[in-house]
Every structure is written in structure tokens, then in C-alpha cells.
């Protein structure tokens, strides 16, 4: 890996966008949106459930994995 190739990695890391999966505290409704700074799993957030308008909490925080290079086999 050269310095030029590693710059691609730096770009990939800086463009990594974490997502928060919110879950309603009352019903099973789930909602995926961009992660906001200061959030953590289980935190109750300001978003309201689109179905029943109850408060929602952060169930999971994750990133989508970068695309893997195709194997030649």
C-alpha cells in the first residue's frame, strides 16, 4: 500500500457516516437516521414515533461497512 492508496483510506474513514436506529418506547416502530453527536445506545432522544408519537430511544448505532473489493475467484 502506497501513500497515495492510503489517502483513499483516510478519505473513506472521514466520509464514514454513523447511523442511529431508533425504537419507539411504546410500540415496535423503528426508524433509521443519521447519528447525532452526544447520542449513545439506550438514550431517549427528542424524535417522536411516527406511528404513535411516543418518545423514541437509540437502540443501535452503526456504520455501513465499506464496499469490499471483488474477489477474482
Amino acid at each position: 500500500m502506497s501513500l497515495k492508496e492510503i489517502n483513499e483510506t483516510f478519505k473513506e474513514i472521514s466520509s464514514m457516516k454513523p447511523l442511529s436506529l431508533l425504537k419507539c418506547t411504546k410500540c415496535d416502530e423503528k426508524l433509521e437516521r443519521s447519528y447525532k453527536e452526544g447520542e449513545y445506545a439506550t438514550k431517549v432522544v427528542e424524535d417522536k414515533c411516527p406511528k404513535c408519537a411516543s418518545p423514541m430511544y437509540v437502540k443501535l448505532i452503526y456504520v455501513n461497512p465499506p464496499p469490499q473489493p471483488q474477489s477474482s475467484y
Binding site: M16, P18, L19, L21, L60, I61, Y62, V63, N64, P65
Partner: peptide
């Protein structure tokens, strides 16, 4: 590294 969706779910 940050948790990937495949693990979190």
C-alpha cells in the same frame, strides 16, 4: 473500529 450494521443487528 465503529460497529458495522452486520454486527449491531
Amino acid at each position: 473500529s465503529p460497529m458495522v450494521k452486520q454486527i449491531a443487528t
